[in-house]
């Protein structure tokens, strides 16, 4: 059974023109389709990586999974229960089970809270345990992320290094004993030499504490290292999903291919064949109905701007790409 399932989930934002715009230029309300008809599933104990460039909808997807943003359509199922239909006490429980780790360790910690207050805040807000128990759990959790409570208990965030702050962020999510952790680019603000430590910590804790994880990043090198499965998004659409090895070693979708071949390799002897993609990712404002990559895709034809196949959640473990011309592309290549 999947822990989390997103069925046909979309999130649209309306872009209303100002009064002047409306009167003088007849501006209409435009729609940003940040996430369009996403299907995905996360199994217990797996790490699902979501990759894509900025504006691909990965952060919006995270917010919907964490219950911070309701979907415009479609359903978010958690243990087969629709999150949109939960009662407030169920929702509180859901809030505990699904936790987030944030991107920016300098922004995501309240500057006026001490480390112990930051980590205790979740259990206190949801009244998970008594105060004494919270204290014990928090101390144990801090030790678990490598910050001995004796030394860090009374510190303020501005007294910590970036790596230490991110450990506090991780502790404050995991102290809730979540079943699913959504990590939104947790390493992108950290220095190279300490990234591996945080990555190891996340991997190790996910094994120890049995939580599933959605790890969102634009950095495929990191995802290649931590994820079990990988979902690639482009401009709000899911374009490819599969085991991390399949997707990276044998990408199917033209976008995934371009993306992977564009990742620089830390070895001067490796010569990559650069992708043949032109242009830049735009914003999904009133996009055409078909595949949103069509305008930049070297293999696209007329049908691509009209047809878009969604990924199929019924076979979650299969390697699939949302491109209806895969066979033609493959035959062109050979």
């Amino acid at each position: 059974m999947a822990l989390l399932e997103l069925n046909n989930v979309s999130r649209h934002f309306e872009l209303r023109p100002g009064v002047v715009e409306r009167v003088l230029r007849g501006g209409k309300t435009r729609v940003i389709k940040a996430v369009e008809a996403i299907n995905l599933s996360v199994a217990k104990d797996e790490i699902l990586g979501i990759a894509g460039e900025s504006g691909c909808g990965k952060s919006t997807t995270c917010s919907m999974v964490a219950g911070l943003l309701p979907p415009s359509s479609g359903e978010v199922l958690y243990r087969d229960r629709n999150v949109g239909e939960m009662t407030s006490s169920e929702l509180n429980d859901h809030r505990r089970r699904v936790q987030m780790i944030f991107q920016d360790p300098y922004e995501s910690l309240n500057p006026r809270f001490r480390v112990s207050d930051i980590v205790s805040e979740g259990p206190r807000a949801l009244r998970l345990w008594g105060e004494r128990e919270i204290e014990e759990q928090v101390a144990a959790m801090l030790a678990g992320v490598g910050l001995p409570a004796g030394k860090y208990w009374d510190r303020y965030p501005h007294e910590l290094s970036g790596g230490e702050r991110q450990r506090v962020g991780i502790a404050s999510a995991l102290v809730m004993k979540p079943e699913l952790v959504v990590a939104d680019e947790p390493l992108s603000m950290l220095d190279v030499s300490i990234r591996a430590g945080i990555l190891d910590l996340l991997k190790e804790l996910s094994r120890q504490r049995n939580f599933a994880c959605i790890y969102v990043s634009h950095d495929l090198s990191i995802l290649a290292n931590i994820a079990d499965r990988l979902l690639i998004m482009y401009l709000g659409q899911a374009v490819e999903v599969g085991s991390v090895h399949d997707v990276i070693k044998n990408p199917k979708h033209p976008y995934t291919r371009a993306l992977i071949s564009a990742v620089p390799v830390p070895d001067p002897r490796v010569k990559r064949s650069p992708p043949k993609i032109v242009g830049e990712i735009s914003r999904p404002v009133d996009p055409p109905p078909g595949c949103r990559f069509a305008s930049r895709c070297p293999h696209a034809d007329q049908s691509c701007s009209e047809v878009f196949i969604k990924l199929d959640t019924n076979s979650p473990l299969a390697h699939q790409a949302a491109c209806h011309r895969l066979e033609q592309i493959n035959s062109e290549a050979t």
Partner: peptide
């Protein structure tokens, strides 16, 4: 950190 607080419940 406000989003974080919301996410913590």
């Amino acid at each position: 950190f406000i989003t974080a607080a919301k996410a913590r419940g």
